[in-house]
């Protein structure tokens, strides 16, 4: 994992309370579980019908019937439960998940999220993302601040088809921690050495900088 992605995963890992029920998306969000602070144990919910999903199994210990939402071999920890997809999404939509961590193609200042298609190019589908974003109590977007080509991802208004309207609460990138509020996007923490001017230059939406901005660890 690149340094930027490790920085993001580490910061997201400190956003939970012990015992929170959390659904981690595929890719960078999955790595969050590797950085949980001492004393913080989460109930990981996996959309394919598991609670207490654990780490990947040791080689040779794979179970053909236990995978994570990305299709990789996984494990179920003591206290885990298995259920069907209707139950899994009742848990999600019903507000029983404390937080979800997802990647994004675009997020905007109103908390709109686009992460399921680029028309005419890549159309993977939304999978469980639309339900997760609508149903989880807290929606955390964990992503690199700009695209590989340096284009904005945090916008005034999303231009790609939306995953959900006004559901995103937090954005964590390698540059900082941002909270989406009715007033706009408030920068709560900046990565070491990053100035307000630098993060603003890489963000299309206007950012709000309060007086006390902590350093992101």
């Amino acid at each position: 994992m690149s340094d930027a992605r490790a920085v993001i995963a580490k910061r997201v890992a400190r956003m939970f309370k012990d015992g929170d029920i959390v659904n981690l998306g595929i890719g960078l969000p999955t790595a969050v579980a590797n950085y949980l602070p001492e004393g913080i144990n989460l109930v990981i919910h996996s959309e394919n019908g598991v609670t207490m999903m654990g780490p990947k199994p040791l080689e040779g210990d794979e179970d053909k019937d236990v995978i994570d939402a990305g299709g990789r071999p996984s494990t179920i920890l003591p206290g885990g439960a298995c259920f069907d997809s209707a139950m899994s999404f009742a848990i999600i939509r019903g507000g029983h998940v404390d937080a979800t961590v997802l990647g994004a193609l675009q997020v905007d200042k109103n908390g709109n999220l686009a992460n399921w298609m680029v028309p005419g190019k890549v159309v993977p589908g939304m999978g469980g993302a639309m339900d997760l974003v609508v149903g989880a109590k807290k929606v955390i977007i964990a992503m690199e601040h700009s695209t590989k080509n340096g284009e904005f991802k945090i916008l005034k208004e999303c231009t790609l088809p939306l995953t959900a309207v006004a559901e995103v609460d937090w954005i964590v990138t390698e540059l900082g921690l941002m909270e989406i509020t009715k007033e706009g996007i408030i920068v709560r923490e900046l990565a070491p050495g990053i100035t307000p001017e630098e993060i603003q230059a890489k963000t299309e939406a206007g950012l709000i900088f309060p007086e006390n901005i902590a350093i992101m660890e």
């Binding site: 209707a86 999404f89 939509r93 159309v123 589908g125 993302a129």
Partner: peptide, 29 residues
């Protein structure tokens, strides 16, 4: 494409003799 929760609940509705269901998922998309 269906959101996954909608996909499975549509199947459940058919099997459960329901005329459909109301979901907040996908509103505005």
């Amino acid at each position: 494409f269906n959101p996954q929760g909608t996909f499975v609940e549509r199947i459940r509705s058919a099997g459960a003799g329901l005329g459909g269901f109301l979901t907040p998922t996908g509103v505005g998309t």
